[in-house]
Write a protein that binds this DNA or RNA. Structure first.
Lengths: 192, 192
DNA sequence: AAACAAATGTTGATTAACAAACATTTGTTT
DNA sequence: AAACAAATGTTTGTTAATCAACATTTGTTT
């Protein structure tokens, strides 16, 4: 009668429980030290439920990353909705939304930032950020002698730098403050 | 294979979701204004699941109250475990644990304290508190001319007074501070 | 009072999650 | 190297939770 697993509440809830459990465990130890048994215990879910959806714990982590990246994309694109005029300014407006996104997933970002084993995920985030910025930049007319792809990459990694520092300081600043910092920095290094 | 509903994770989780949803809704409107539909929506649970366990929303609320009262009893009895010497001092040690309990269920207590329709539940809490104190008092030898049942009731309602004020001030004090307040008050009105 | 929408309660088919038992693998201790 | 515990996958029967459709009741608007 209903064969669409992803919209089944039970599936959704089980997966969320497993992901929350993994996040929580990753705050204490690294992935190899974590067992499937520990995950299902923390998630309060039967072992069989885990193996119904995933083969290894790595697969769970991967889906977790996918989720966050999808939310990153959502957060970034949200201010660009409804065919508004796209410009370099939009690029900055969107960048600001990213701080909200990072704060929302603070636990996740802290884990991947502070883990040596998970550096691969950092670069994946960076690449995604760059891609998003390039997307905006493609729809913009040239500005005096700047290679826009370079600009996109430049700014993506710059923002990642802000985020890294934010994380390393244990989120002691608010997302709004971080946005203001970005705007202030942009004001100094103006390219228009 | 397993026929014990109460230890089934699915049951436990569904009920918790429904209770949390009800608490959350009661913060906005009173019970009559809340529909079963709203509850199951907020709980992210199918309507059928609700009707599997409860007939009306009132039944859900009742079970919620039962849960809290059971936890109140647990909290109170915990320091009295393992046949420790029971005395009037224990009565105070236990009273302190109650503040932790109330803080843990802050949302619940706020709702029943601030609702006119739910005054019946307040007196139920008070009675339970009195019963618990009487229980301790029964195992204690007399102290100079004090009717111990009166003492139990006196103190139970006194503590409820503290809790009421605590709630009315939106929990602006910590549980520890409340404990200290209680101890200080007891120090002034010493009966030994 | 008729039409309407919203909430209620019920039903049936489907399946994800469950407990519990199992054999297997891994890794440590004796 | 044998004994041991712990973690890993797998399996089976059972059922709570799910979706979706339905008839009914309630309450509001026209």
């Amino acid at each position: 009668m209903f064969m669409d697993n992803y919209h089944d509440r039970r599936v959704r809830k089980s997966k969320i429980a497993l992901k929350n459990a993994l996040i929580s465990l990753l705050q204490q130890k690294n992935l190899q030290q974590i067992t499937v048994t520990k995950i299902v215990q923390a998630a309060d879910v039967n072992r069989g439920t885990f193996y119904k959806h995933y083969q290894y714990k790595e697969e769970l982590l991967e889906e977790m990353v996918d989720d966050v990246i999808l939310d990153l994309i959502d957060s970034y694109r949200e201010p660009l909705k409804e065919g508004e005029k796209i410009s370099i300014d939009n690029l900055n407006v969107s960048a600001i939304k990213i701080f909200d996104h990072v704060e929302k997933h603070a636990d996740f970002y802290t884990i991947i930032a502070k883990s040596n084993a998970l550096v691969g995920l950092q670069s994946r985030i960076c690449m995604q950020l760059t891609d998003l910025m390039k997307e905006v930049v493609e729809q913009t007319r040239e500005i005096k002698g700047i290679e826009l792809n370079l600009l996109a990459s430049y700014q993506a990694y710059a923002i990642w730098g802000l985020i890294r520092e934010w994380i390393d300081q244990d989120f002691k600043y608010s997302a709004t403050y971080m946005s203001n910092q970005l705007l202030t920095i942009l004001h100094f290094t103006r390219y228009s």
